[in-house]
Computed example of a mutant assay.
Amino acid sequence: MKKALSIVLSIILLLSVVPVVTIGVSAAEDEVLEIRTIADLYSINNNMSGNYRLMNDIDMTEDTAVGGDWDFMGNGWEPLGSDGIYGNIPFMGTFDGNGHKIIGMRINRNTTPSGAGTIYLGLFAKNEGTIQNLGIDETSIVAEGDYSSGICAFNSGTVLNCYNKAAVSSSTYYSYSGGICGYNSGNISNCYNEADISAKYYSGGICGYSKSGEFKNCYNTGIIATDSHMNTPYSGGICGSTESGNIIDCYNIGDITSTIEYSKSSTTAYSSDMTFISYCMLGVSVDQIKAV
């Protein structure tokens, strides 16, 4: 009996001095932070690699109106990752909209902050993580960015199960406008746009310009337009133009126009309808398909 007790005491003593090793992801890394207010949403800037879940619709109508509590320089909402200069610090975590939407988000750049370069406008400036299950409603507006969109100005991550109903427009010289993202090199699936999208250079229902990546199960019903006096403008129901990648099981029923106010002999305007989608699976650029 004494011998057994001695063995038990020895084991207890051993455990008390040997450090416990935890296998797997830490609790902090697993933690999902709940977003309920605009202040909660803006605090994502403090940790752009975190995991977040939207717990309710967020109405920005009054707060991003001129003079509102979250009116940045008179321009409305300051995109996440903007860093006060409309920059593009990437979001690298997970943002789950949880089936909720952003209401009345106003971004209308009339004033440019000191130190700004290329202008990124959207709920997020740039996404390298995952944004999912989120909507931007029809009372929202995004205007006057170089890269502009309802969800994220620039995407090199994953966007899925999202929609945009916010009108997106830009009159800047080289501008990329899209419902889900302005510029893409990532993957977008199960997303749609119902808003009017316009730009001087590249304009698309889902994305203005795509360097690579994949679009799957997406559609557009909004009016898509480019209107330029110097650039070669591109418009597309899904994407204004692409270098490579796939567009799978997508469709467009929105009107598409691409016009030039003033052009040199070498300048041509391009627009794309559903023919663009079938060719894109082969990695063919829009300028090889249909000239208007």
Results as ranks from 00 to 15, higher is better:
A167E: 12
S149N: 15
Y173C: 00
D249S: 15
G24N: 08
T22W: 04
S265A: 15
L54P: 01
A4C: 00
T158F: 04
S235R: 00
A116T: 13
N98D: 06
T111C: 04
S82G: 10
D249V: 11
E214K: 11
G97S: 01
G122S: 08
L14K: 03
Y86H: 02
N108D: 13
L15C: 09
P113W: 02
G24A: 13
E78W: 01
G104E: 06
I102S: 08
I136L: 06
I85C: 07
F215W: 12
Y174I: 01
T267G: 08
G204E: 03
G182N: 12
F72M: 04
T242I: 13
G236Y: 12
I103H: 08
L134W: 10
T61H: 10
I131Q: 05
E128P: 00
M60Q: 04
V66D: 01
K101H: 05
A28V: 14
K200Y: 01
N246F: 10
S148D: 08
A116E: 07
L14M: 13
N127C: 02
N110R: 06
E194R: 12
S175K: 08
S212Q: 06
L15I: 05
Y42G: 02
D83F: 03
I23L: 01
Y219S: 09
Y163M: 06
C207L: 12
A28D: 15
L13T: 09
V20I: 14
V159N: 02
T158R: 01
Y262G: 06
V17G: 03
N187Q: 03
F95L: 14
N127W: 02
L160R: 13
S203A: 15
A153R: 05
Y183S: 07
I197Q: 04
S16F: 14
L80W: 01
Y86N: 07
N193M: 03
S149H: 05
T257E: 10
Y209H: 14
K165D: 04
I58N: 05
E261R: 15
P19Q: 11
G93E: 07
G122M: 09
D63T: 15
S49F: 13
C191L: 03
T130W: 02
D40N: 14
I35Q: 11
N217L: 11
A199S: 15
G283T: 10
S210G: 12
E214R: 05
R36T: 14
G67T: 03
V286L: 05
G99T: 06
D249H: 14
E261L: 10
N98A: 01
I248T: 15
D255C: 00
G99Y: 02
T267R: 04
S203F: 05
R106H: 09
L134G: 08
K3E: 12
I85E: 11
H100L: 02
T232L: 13
Y262Q: 13
L14S: 09
S263I: 02
N155T: 00
E29C: 03
W77P: 04
L80F: 13
P19H: 08
N164L: 11
S266R: 09
T130F: 00
K264T: 15
S185V: 03
E144N: 15
S177Q: 12
V32H: 10
S170I: 07
G87N: 12
M73P: 00
V168S: 03
A116I: 01
Q288A: 05
S272W: 00
I11A: 02
L80T: 10
L9Q: 04
S177Y: 11
S148N: 10
G205L: 11
Q132H: 02
T112L: 15
E62M: 06
I247E: 05
A291E: 06
G222F: 05
